[in-house]
Nucleic acid binder design. Structure first.
Length: 425
RNA sequence: GGAGAGAUGGCUGAGUUGGUCGAAGGCGCUCGACUGGAAAUCGAGUAGACGGGUCAAAAACUCGUCUCGUGGGUUCAAAUCCCACUCUCUCCGCCA
């Protein structure tokens, strides 16, 4: 959510920022509502002031045993008018709030302009692409031959875009979760959180999934619960409505969670394999930072996520998203894209973003910079560290051998009980 | 699921015959005094949001409105009375 005062003072600047995202709608309606609200407020507050003074007078007279009936009668009318004004203010604010909640964040100045992902800019590459003296198979074929992922039974029991992991496949998934959590907690200093996998609608508004993107999520019918699309939601909302001590910042959290996405509008895309599932596992990094440090923190967070891929020996590149590809709440995002040999392309495996105070304002996450200073909104950041299912896909494809077996990356062996290679059972 | 108790400021904790209560006291914190320095002691200060004024603007200052779980109601006036909801705690039942 943008700062209403900033919009009021620099409407043309905000409009220019939104235009970079390709949004041309003006802010006139917004500004009109805003000034109407203030007019109503001024009138209502003046009346309330008078009412309060007269009420004090009534109290005085009663104490002295004097009559106050004419004062009370006069205030009865004032009270009616106040009620009318309060109602008008309430509806105006409601409208304003709804509008405000649907306006996306303003891109950071360093974000490249563009209409879509074709305008994303590569920042760096890491790793040697694997060379094969055979035709590399897609991960779903490798997995089926090894009998470690069951796509068909996933569909039978749950539906399309669900799988069963089995044997060494299940072990691999679990090993990756533990490997990532250990790396981020022990080496990078994040505090581990194990969050709820369902949250209420208020939390979804806090991080920006609601009200605009309800169709992308699973909602538990008859309740106010939503399945989380990412641990970002519960972990960012951990401190919602709180004023943190400035000395606590920055706060680093890492959380494993299952993630649930309805993938509305993705029909026909990535229908095979692990790339696009309704349920997948992810280790998520979340930071709460002072505003002045948040871009530094974004760079560090991105490097922390990259290290997962480096230790696993998976080639990747980092791209900065263009204004057209940027998510609703983000001011700047780096995507990590891992190499998938079967498709001979890089595919997103992590997304690291700085939301500045956009989420903090929605969720009410503030900090006190110092004693006696006024509370300010924190900056929130998060990034996948990293998506587990896609990591499995990348390992299977990059480490596949001619004989159909798959080598286990060195860093992962301790987590696989010393297993060196996955063979068909 | 059943029965009961409760929800007040950073924390703790008063306040329920409605009327200077945004709120006593304590703790914590900030500033000052005392001290060679510190502790102890003493003094002062210490919630948030929104809006008006001042101002180019911000900060600061000042005036006002709202907020004592949330939403609504009664009243000239509600932390205090009424209704609904949420959450917490205790006991019982059930349960991984």
């Amino acid at each position: 959510m943008l700062d209403i005062k900033v919009i009021r003072q620099n409407p043309e600047k905000i409009a220019a920022g939104l235009a970079r995202r390709g949004l041309t709608a003006g802010l006139d309606n917004f500004l009109e509502l805003d000034s109407r609200r203030r007019e109503l407020l001024v009138e209502a507050e003046a009346l309330k002031n008078r009412r309060n003074q007269v009420s004090a007078e009534v109290a005085q007279r009663k104490k002295k045993g004097q009559d106050a009936t004419e004062l009370i009668a006069a205030m009865r009318e004032v009270a009616d008018r106040i009620k009318e004004l309060d109602e008008a203010i309430r509806t105006t604010e409601e409208e304003l709030q709804q509008l405000l909640l649907t306006i996306p964040n303003i891109p950071h100045e360093s974000v490249p302009d563009g209409l879509d992902d074709t305008a994303n800019v590569e920042v760096r590459r890491w790793g040697e692409l694997p060379q094969f003296d055979f035709e590399p198979l897609p991960h779903w074929e490798i997995a089926e031959k090894l009998n470690i992922i069951d796509f068909e039974r996933g569909s039978k029991v749950a539906g399309a875009r669900f799988v069963f992991y089995r044997g060494a496949g299940a072990r691999l998934e679990r090993a990756l979760v533990n490997f990532m959590l250990d790396l981020h907690t022990i080496k990078h200093g994040y505090t581990e959180i194990f969050p709820p996998f369902m949250v209420n609608s208020n939390s979804m508004v806090g991080t920006g999934q609601l009200p605009k993107f309800a169709a992308d999520m699973f909602h538990v019918e008859g309740t106010d619960y939503y399945l989380i699309p990412t641990a970002e939601v519960p972990v960012t909302n951990l401190y919602s409505g709180e004023i943190l001590d400035g000395e606590q910042l920055p706060i680093y959290h890492v959380a494993y969670s299952a993630c649930f996405r309805a993938e509305a509008g993705a029909a026909g895309r990535d229908t095979r394999g692990l790339i696009r599932q309704h349920q997948f596992n992810k280790v998520e990094l979340v930071k709460f930072s002072r505003p002045e440090n948040s871009y530094e923190e974004l760079e560090k967070l991105t490097r922390d996520a990259e290290e997962v891929l480096q230790l696993l020996g998976l080639p990747y590149r980092v791209v900065v998203l263009s204004t057209g590809d940027l998510g609703f709440s983000a001011a700047k995002t780096y995507d990590l894209e891992v190499w998938l040999p079967s498709a001979a392309t890089y595919r997103e495996i992590s997304s690291c973003s700085n939301f500045e105070d956009f989420q903090a304002r929605r969720a009410g996450i503030r900090f006190r910079p110092g004693p006696k200073e006024k509370p300010r909104f924190v900056h929130t950041l998060n990034g996948s560290g990293v998506a587990v299912g896609r990591t499995v896909a990348a390992i299977l494809e990059n480490y596949q051998q001619k004989d159909g077996t798959v080598l286990i990356p060195k860093a992962l062996k301790p987590y696989m009980g010393g297993l060196e290679v996955i063979r068909p059972e």
